[in-house]
Design a protein around this nucleic acid. Structure first.
Length: 455
RNA sequence: GUGGUUGUAGCUCAGCUGGUUAGAGCGCUUGAUUGUGGUUCAAGAGGUCGCCGGUUCGAAACCGGUCUUCCACCCCA
């Protein structure tokens, strides 16, 4: 049997783990700085918690876990002979792998509502699973990094999350990301204004593709979805929306003058963008983008998406938004929330492409002690013990192999120093420290060795 | 889920329209006076040609299925 892993999953080598942890740590540090606290939820939930929460497409992409035991015995013959998977699945599978972190979070909030102090700010970094067909930067097992706050309608949350995005990407050295912002209320307002409220989803899905298929492509798709020509004409100002945020908001305000919902959306956007302008961002830029239409199943206010710098061909590296009703599916009403997510795998690809990973992030020994035999090893091990107590990662080559082999090992593992301690060193109670980069060798006693390796 | 694409040594790939013992580079192992790696030189090991089945006198090459890779759509992080 040839060893292999399932489609869309990955092994990570030490360098990759080091780099992923670097991203995780940077994100965690900033989550903490902004007052978020970590929670974790199980990797699998009861199916009923997940099913039906992501649309019919989502149900297909949820990994279902087969019941244990003789699960088929619970399926009656008529149901079995129908061969309808959607009907049999709930009978033979009562648990499913986590599909995202948002729904389990909503479940968590409702389940623990009496222990939670609101507004509740939590972050969560855990893997999720999707039975999707893999593509570049899309896997069947991947990590999500989410921060959410529930129990506050304040627009200051939106302001905070935008600053949080800016802080994380600045810390990662990824300059020039664009945080795009839109508002569901504006999209609703537009749909209302052009008389296509019932086609809001079709309308926004098409609009979302503007930068991909162009103005004509969008119009074509809208016509196919049954949006009348007259409505498309009213949309024209959207396609030619240009200028500064203030100017764009002014045009939107005029377009949406007859929609209270739309006007409210414009006002929210105005508050957020003006506040951010006053506060300033470190390296990111905020851009209004009325074509942004993601997660419409649950977003009710602000919609955010982060794009990588233009020079890398990578879609969004993060997204989020305001949802007013997330917990109502679990029976808790009036619990407005807002959250954002970081796309770890894509951020990794972007940092790699731009060569932004620091050199020093992989965990590695500082020194390798060569093995010259039993007595010599004991002498070396005493020094190694001392070094480790002092926080210096050091190790002994386990076998008394030829020196060339031991040196080669240090070389391959990029261990910066080797220590030679043979008969003559023991006699003088010293160690020969060799710098593998320069080849320079020095004879040092234990204290000097410690000091040399500590720095 | 739909359409396409990829799969040959550990890695990156050659292998012409089916024809003897399947190749290269890198890597690996060993050696070049047994206390010195990264350079050089020499020798060597390593492949059921993704897997299953079919066509053929003969298949790595052609056909079907399957798994995998990547891409587009759908959707999404």
């Amino acid at each position: 049997m040839k060893p292999s892993i399932p489609k869309g999953t990955r092994d990570f080598n030490p360098v990759e783990v080091g780099r992923r942890n670097y991203i995780f740590d940077t994100i965690k540090k900033n989550f903490a700085l902004y007052g978020f606290q970590p929670i974790e939820t199980p990797s699998f939930e009861n199916s009923e918690t997940l099913m039906g929460k992501y649309g019919e497409e989502g149900d297909r992409l949820i990994f279902k876990l087969l019941n244990s035991g003789d699960f088929l015995s619970k399926v009656n013959d008529t149901l079995y002979s129908e061969k309808d998977s959607t009907k049999i699945t709930p009978k033979i599978s009562e648990k499913a792998l986590r599909y995202d972190l948002t729904v389990p979070f909503a479940r968590y909030v409702v389940q623990h509502r009496n222990e939670i102090t609101f507004p509740f700010k939590r972050y969560q970094i855990q893997p999720v699973w999707r039975a999707d067909r893999p593509q570049k930067g899309r896997f069947r097992e991947f990590y999500q990094c989410d921060a959410d706050v529930v129990g506050s309608k304040s627009l200051w949350q939106e302001v905070e999350f935008i600053q949080l995005y800016d802080a994380v990407f600045t810390d990662l050295g990824l300059k020039g990301v664009t945080i795009k912002i839109n508002n569901r209320k504006i999209l609703s307002g537009i749909a209302e204004t052009i008389g296509a409220e019932d086609k809001l989803i079709d309308f926004t899905v098409a609009l979302d593709k503007l930068d991909k298929i162009g103005e004509e492509g969008v119009k074509k798709e809208m016509r196919e979805k049954g949006i009348p020509e007259a409505a498309l004409e009213k949309l024209q100002p959207l396609f030619s929306l240009k200028g500064s945020a203030i100017e764009q908001l002014q045009s939107l305000r005029e377009l949406l003058i007859n929609s209270t919902m739309g006007t409210q959306g414009v006002e929210e956007l105005e508050f957020i963008s003006k506040t951010i302008e006053t506060l300033g961002l470190r390296t990111a830029s905020l851009q209004i983008d009325v074509t942004l239409a993601r997660g419409l199943n649950y977003y009710t206010g602000a919609i955010l998406e982060v794009s990588a710098p233009a020079e890398v061909k990578m879609g969004s590296i993060g997204g989020g938004g305001r949802y007013d009703d997330l917990t109502s599916i679990f029976g808790l009403k009036d619990m407005s929330g807002m959250g954002i997510s970081f796309g770890l795998d894509r951020i990794y690809l972007v940092l790699e492409e731009l060569n932004l990973f620091p050199e020093t992030i992989s965990e590695n020994s500082k020194a390798l002690f060569l093995n010259f035999g039993e007595q010599e090893s004991l002498y070396a091990m005493k020094a190694i013990k001392e070094l480790r107590v002092n926080g210096v990662a050091a190790e002994l080559y386990p076998d008394a192999a030829k020196m060339g082999k031991q040196m080669g090992y240090a070389d391959k593992r990029d261990i910066p120093f080797t220590v030679l301690a043979g008969e003559s060193e023991i006699e003088q109670q010293v160690f020969t420290l060799k710098n593998m980069k320069t080849g320079e060798q020095r004879s040092l006693d234990l204290t000097a060795l410690k000091n040399a390796l500590k720095s």
